[in-house]
Design a protein around this nucleic acid. Structure first.
Lengths: 329, 329
DNA sequence: TTGTAGGCGTTATCAT
DNA sequence: ATGATAACGCCTACAA
């Protein structure tokens, strides 16, 4: 049987209140009795029950994080960032994989609230209407990472300018025909916004946008591979590819290599995200770097500020991206 | 103010017990009153407080998972496996990154217990003495993944035979001089056991073990890169490398490629783990495949069995590894 | 079928 | 400086 505060009170010959006082070291308690209590705790191997405590104090020191898929390259880094600062402030994290499935999202959101998390960090493609309602009625503060929505605090990068810069860069290298592989069509940022940046860059450079040069991918290696094959088998294939996800970009490189197309001489590629592997593959991948760890860390940091009623100088944080030139371009 | 069971009781004009009964749909409750209650719940947007519930029922439907580093290639997969089956059984997971630091491990273990997790899944290099004590006194069942210890349930692969098979394979390809890059020296499995397999294979093939051909790495890309350079610059460099981690192996490939050494013609490499990227890099990496997702899923499955007092036919589960031949060998 | 009340392990207020 | 005691929100005998 798990032992509780009462047991140690008895053992130490004091009341449970003083035991409580020493474990929270609140108020003054005579050194001598404190010692007695500590001793009892030690002997009994007592550990306070955080659940009971939470019920009383009305917070749990835990936060929930909703992420599409932790096994997807992009997220472990940001989750790590979150967890590092969470643990600094003594929060634990519930990890929830939503697979971008709005049913799952809703469910997780509910249990997170039932479990009385102090805050929620949300990552995902887009916020469904139903989810929006949940957000509105949420009893815990919500932070968005990688996405923006209404007036919730968020940390993002400027995806549109990042994309524009990527394809501008490709164009500046002399490419007249640059193709693109996006994410799933319904994803407003990986597909929507980044494609918009791509279009704008083309326009600014007086190149015509050609729908047949952009392929809808699925964010994973395979769709990059297949997308690239499709593009590269065109009668007049593009000489450069902007791909809105590194894993897809690596798939695309693979396709090119297999087709005997030389990178970067015959085909230049720039990806997006700067996942860990981007710098490690051969040839290494040029890409737009998102500061993933920082996005997580900063997101969690603003959450702690909200939780501790600290002043928030900016609800909408947009971090710097960077164009990382490597061997693929 | 968060609304509670009392509020809905009042609203529905019933007692809190009947409300409790409908939300747990235990016992019979007249359809009509049930409807009333449901309606009240709906109107009020009531969500049961799982903390209060946990305090009463003495379990939390959450488990803790301790992992060295979620941003390290190997773990996201297994965590995903864990989470998938956890969510099937309606458990949530606390994710803790220990960095293999025993201080952190101890701390996390304590808060996990204070937060009354129903079980703990532990992954890590080795179990310190202090940690062993914690295990012994733990009030929650513990499952080990990727490591074995005393009589705790564990799911692993046969690392020694896996390693042996890897280098046997290399030798069968005609290599007489095969080097190795291990993990950190103190890690009993990534360094200890896998190195042992390497030695045994050498021995079985009447090749002499040469300490200067094995380098202690650090599990990451960089140490693979540096280790390979070191080995490859030897007057008589090995023609094959067995590397006890794919990320290091990819680093090693990189080093070779930069040195103008052709893979696999001049240097064959086989790694360990079969991380996601192993099949995606160029050239693709031959490796020992650990069923990472399954290890997580199965580990969690046995935990649920323990939690539900189901029969456990085997405490020590060892899964099949597989030698995956790709382009690097 | 429904309601009353005690208790889960704490914290915090109010006495002492 | 310390001790009783009433919550916190829920579940569950037991009673009605």
């Amino acid at each position: 049987m798990r032992i509780n505060i009462k047991d140690v009170a008895k053992r130490a010959g004091v009341s449970i209140s003083t035991v409580s006082r020493v474990i929270n070291d609140s108020k003054a308690v005579r050194p001598k009795t404190k010692a007695k209590v500590l001793e009892a705790i030690e002997e009994l191997g007592y550990k306070p029950n955080a659940i009971a405590r939470s019920l009383k104090v009305r917070h749990t020191k835990t936060i929930g994080i909703m992420v599409p898929d932790i096994s997807n390259q992009f997220y472990p880094e940001v989750v790590r960032g979150i967890e590092d600062v969470a643990s600094m402030y003594e929060y634990n994290i519930f990890l929830c994989n939503t697979d971008l499935d709005s049913e799952k999202e809703l469910q997780y959101f509910d249990v997170l609230e039932e479990k009385q998390v102090d805050g929620i960090i949300y990552m995902g493609g887009n916020i469904s209407e139903e989810m929006g309602k949940r957000f509105k009625n949420a009893s815990a503060p919500i932070i968005l990472i990688g996405i923006d929505y209404e007036d919730y605090p968020s940390v993002t990068i400027d995806n549109i300018n990042a994309s524009k810069e990527a394809v501008n860069y490709l164009i500046s290298k002399g490419h007249k025909k640059v193709g693109m592989i996006t994410g799933k069509a319904h994803d407003p940022i990986i597909s929507g916004v980044r494609k918009e940046g791509y279009k704008q860059a083309l326009e600014e450079n007086n190149l015509t946008f050609d729908e047949s040069l952009v392929i809808e991918g699925g964010n994973r290696f395979k769709s990059g591979y297949e997308g690239a094959r499709q593009l590269l088998e065109l009668p007049e294939p593009p000489s450069a590819l902007f791909i809105s996800g590194d894993e897809m970009a690596i798939g695309a490189m693979r396709a090119a290599l297999e087709m005997g197309i030389k990178i970067p001489d015959e085909l230049a590629i720039v990806g997006f995200n700067n996942i860990d592997m981007a710098g490690k593959v051969f040839p290494s991948l040029s890409t737009i770097g998102q500061p993933m760890y920082e996005m997580g860390a900063i997101g969690m940091r603003v959450l702690t500020k909200i939780l501790h009623d600290e002043e928030l100088d900016d609800k909408k944080i947009v971090l710097n991206y960077s164009l990382i030139e490597r061997e693929s371009s």
